[in-house]
């Protein structure tokens, strides 16, 4: 699979938020304004790309030679948790306002199934190290795309009249559902038309 195909797959065709429905917690929680949504997106890109690279090395150089592949979930979580702690330290140092805006959702990246998901998917798809990294990066990019669009929509929604029972989170869920429907347009067939048979 070419790198372009990997990127298109994880950004559009199997977008983690809108077609695989992974990592919805920060997607709803931090998408209230564009600035913190973009900050969250970049934090996730960083964690996802580094996590899929590191987990690739952990898997192929530690778990496989020792025949303890069944430990992949727990070791991957270990990697992700440490990375998230690192990101938290870095963000607190370089951008306290962003740290404040992300709040509890930053440590929650640790338990974000999207991050563990990309690590497991990359291993299962038999990618090499660079492909894993690219997959992680583009999955993060897909997250950024989804949360960025969501936050712009929600900022617009703030000034619109919304029926009372739908105000706040309910209308956000409906918006997310409609976005997911739109993303159904990106499917494997489209990818094959663009890039030829794989």
């Amino acid at each position: 699979m070419s790198y372009l195909a990997i990127i298109l797959t994880f950004v559009f065709v199997s977008n983690f938020i809108l077609t695989q429905f992974l990592g919805l917690c920060p997607f709803i929680g931090v998408s209230r304004n564009v600035d913190s949504a973009v900050g969250m997106g970049f934090a996730v890109i960083f964690v996802m790309s580094i996590a899929s690279l590191v987990t690739w090395f952990v898997y192929h150089y530690i778990l496989v030679p020792l025949h303890i592949e069944f430990l992949q979930t727990i070791t991957f979580i270990l990697v992700i948790a440490s990375l998230v702690q690192l990101v938290e330290l870095v963000i607190q140092k370089i951008s306290p306002p962003l740290y404040k805006a992300l709040g509890i959702y930053l440590p929650l990246i640790t338990t974000n199934c999207a991050v563990l998901g990309i690590a497991l998917i990359a291993v299962r798809s038999g990618y090499n190290a660079l492909e894993s990294f690219v997959a992680g990066f583009s999955a993060g990019l897909g997250f950024l795309l989804a949360i960025f669009m969501m936050s712009t929509l929600r900022e617009k929604l703030d000034t619109e009249w919304v029926p009372k029972p739908f105000r706040g989170v309910p209308v956000a869920f409906i918006t997310a559902g409609l976005m997911a429907l739109a993303f159904m347009a990106f499917d494997k067939a489209l990818l094959q038309n663009l890039l030829g048979p794989m």
Partner: peptide, 8 residues
Amino acid sequence: SFLAVAVL
């Protein structure tokens, strides 16, 4: 298993 997780 123990060593791998402990060392990591």
